[in-house]
Computed example of a mutant assay.
Amino acid sequence: MTAEQAGYRRSAKSPRGEARRLELLEKVTDELGTNGLVDFSLRRAARAAGTTHKVLLYHFDGPEDLLTQAVLQLRERRITRALEAATGDPDDRSLADRVQSMWPTLIGKESWVLDQAIGLAMYDAARYADLARSASQQYMPALLSICPPTWPEQRKREVSELILATLRGFLIEWRTSGDEAGIHAGFAALLRALEREEQASE
């Protein structure tokens, strides 16, 4: 690494450099959400960000790092909207109602790209395993936050794990088979199970 490159690397870690990195990441994330993961490259990302691939390499540790960061950002946007739907008025809704209100967001505009990311992690785990591992880490805080506040932490985690695994299964079924009737039936069963969980604690 040349002295010039080393100096740029240091500046990239400064507050100004971090702000620039986030600006670039937002633009790449927008492009990824529109065009998906297929044929993703630094040059394509650079065009979307209005810069060069060399500039991206100063701010990110290669194409895999940039792709991972953009997927995390895209997923965070989805979680934020889902949580807004779950916690909006009225604020005394049941856990079952809150989970049901999240579903339209989960199958919204980013869903196909995020499904691609999970598929990529399964296909090439050596390079992209973090795309799948990070999903649970990102979703769990949101699910824990919508559980009844009086529940013990262990119970919140158990029920949140149930919700996450079940919704993930529904998303795969929705993407691969489009069996809306089957998903509707399974969703009804999940909601009844959550209602029983809440009733048991009353």
Rank of each mutant, 00 (worst) to 15 (best):
Tyr8Ser: 04
Arg10Pro: 01
Arg10His: 09
Ala19Phe: 00
Arg21Met: 05
Leu24Trp: 09
Leu25Glu: 03
Glu26Ala: 12
Lys27Pro: 10
Asp30Lys: 09
Leu32Arg: 03
Gly33Tyr: 04
Leu37Trp: 01
Phe40Cys: 02
Ser41Pro: 11
Arg44Val: 00
Arg47Met: 06
Ala49Pro: 00
Leu56Arg: 04
His59Gln: 07
Pro63Lys: 10
Pro63Asn: 01
Leu66Val: 09
Leu66Met: 09
Leu67Trp: 03
Thr68Pro: 10
Ala70Met: 07
Glu76Thr: 15
Ala82Val: 00
Ala86Thr: 06
Gly88His: 12
Gly88Cys: 10
Asp89Met: 06
Ser94Lys: 01
Asp97Cys: 09
Val99Leu: 03
Leu106Phe: 14
Leu106Glu: 04
Ile107Ser: 05
Trp112Ala: 15
Ala121Met: 06
Ala129Cys: 05
Asp130Met: 12
Asp130His: 11
Ala132Gly: 03
Tyr139Leu: 10
Met140Val: 05
Pro141Ile: 14
Ala142Pro: 08
Leu144Glu: 10
Ser145Cys: 10
Ile146Trp: 00
Pro149Thr: 09
Trp151Tyr: 13
Val159Gly: 03
Val159Cys: 01
Gly169Ile: 04
Phe170Met: 12
Asp179Leu: 06
Ala181Met: 06
Ile183Val: 15
Ile183Tyr: 04
His184Ile: 10
Ala188Ile: 04
Leu191Asp: 06
Leu191Glu: 12
Glu197Arg: 08
Gln199Lys: 13
